[in-house]
Amino acid sequence: MIHSDTVISLSQDATYQDMGDNEPAVILQLSTGRLFTCNLTTRCFLDLLADPCSLGDAVDQLLKTFDVPREKLERDLIKLAGQLLAAGLIQLN
């Protein structure tokens, strides 16, 4: 179970490309060729995972960018991290 102290990073098997400043991104899983699309919120989250980062730190950083209550953002990012982990796009550190 992912929680605020869980440290995660982008998988070495995944790469993503944004579509411009403040734009969504496409994510490619290199070993399988699976392709994903995501919105700006997910992209900003991935930007923070180039190096290992705790989920709580990611919440702190994104609170500076988005107008959203902390509890809401943390809940959404825990759910998102679970999806990314299940898809093999991020890894636990």
Partner: peptide, 15 residues
């Protein structure tokens, strides 16, 4: 500083 409007994060697998 001005913050951006928030949208719930999405992740969709494409064909």
């Amino acid at each position: 500083s001005h913050k951006q409007d928030y949208q719930e994060p999405t992740l969709e697998e494409q064909e």
